[in-house]
Design a protein around this nucleic acid. Sequence first.
DNA 1: ATATTGAATAATAAATGAAATATTTATTTT
DNA 2: AAAATAAATATTTCATTTATTATTCAATAT
Lengths: 202, 202
Amino acid sequence: MKQPISTTDPAAEEIKSLILDKAVDRFIRYGFGKTTMVEIAKDCGMSAGNLYRYFESKFEIGVGVAQIYISKAEQILRDVLKRPGLSPTQRLEAFVLEKLRYMHHHIIEQPNVQDLVDYILEDRWDLVERHRDVQNSLMSEILSDGNRTGEFNVSDVVHTANAIYAMTTKFRLPHFIKNVTLEGLEQEAKAVVDLMLHGLKG
Amino acid sequence: MKQPISTTDPAAEEIKSLILDKAVDRFIRYGFGKTTMVEIAKDCGMSAGNLYRYFESKFEIGVGVAQIYISKAEQILRDVLKRPGLSPTQRLEAFVLEKLRYMHHHIIEQPNVQDLVDYILEDRWDLVERHRDVQNSLMSEILSDGNRTGEFNVSDVVHTANAIYAMTTKFRLPHFIKNVTLEGLEQEAKAVVDLMLHGLKG
DNA sequence: ATATTGAATAATAAATGAAATATTTATTTT
DNA sequence: AAAATAAATATTTCATTTATTATTCAATAT
């Protein structure tokens, strides 16, 4: 088993980006399974064999594409934290809704990519965990901020961020997002956020 | 297409029960796919063709078995509502935890039946919806009771029961229950229940 | 007449082999 | 030497056949 070339070489990094760009175009149009290494290579103006100097396998190209989509989602969520003029409460709701909208958009508009990401994440639970950790870390910031302003009263922000993540699981699962309207889902998500804010006793 | 005999005939009802009993034994041991109609018929002391006087198809036998398992779950949850000496808060937590334990038990101890139920429910969304409605109706009773005692302050019990159902989705999904310990799941479920009780502002 | 059977048919799943594709390696180019 | 190719090999996929199983139905028993 031959290893790809060093990832620290800056020129190689550009070629890897090119490959991911061309691959993603194919994956969007035809899906991961229907895209061949020869096609990706041709789009990049190189031979199929040469792809293996940059990626260990077709699967690893898929991993690269999935990581791009995960990174985009994380960027959107980071932007929610930077959005000016929102109270912690509003920020928390926006956080949940933006993730829901991102998922819904890709499931509806780019089902092939969504299928690819799901397929990759089946074998790469570590990426799911890392993405969860990033989200929980961002959520912890929102909770800490709420504590600061007095809006929240959360004793263990990390523990609570985890509980919120569990509570909002449904709004990250393609199975529950397909075949229903975004509007209906948003209403349901808002109800969940409202309940987690005020509690049954409030 | 020949229809099965009338379901109001009491003798026929007993035979249908026998068929479901024998079928479930096979499904538990060998799974739905590996069980043949001839085997079920032999266990019942009849011919395969005769099964069709009682069930339209093998799939409908599966539906019958799935309904039994769903009914059992609902009975367990009804029992939680009758359990004496519990506060509404404790009842709510017990409700969520009992469903989780029932799911976990079947996923771990009887994976073949769990697979069958999942397979049937894929094509019978109506059964999922009915089961959800039953659970939400029971949860509404718990919430109303909490309002009565002053423990809860829920303005729209049905709406809130729906939100609780959404919040606890994760604890009903085989995908999230496999490969983790029941103890860990229970802790997570308790954290979710605690958060939905007190809210972030409490 | 009703219930049941067992053979006949239809549908499904498993097995096979051929074609396509991923991956490796020997060779050529830069 | 490093980079890339193109041919060689190993896997996987896909269509086709074969076998199994579900379902129907004409015949038989109750």
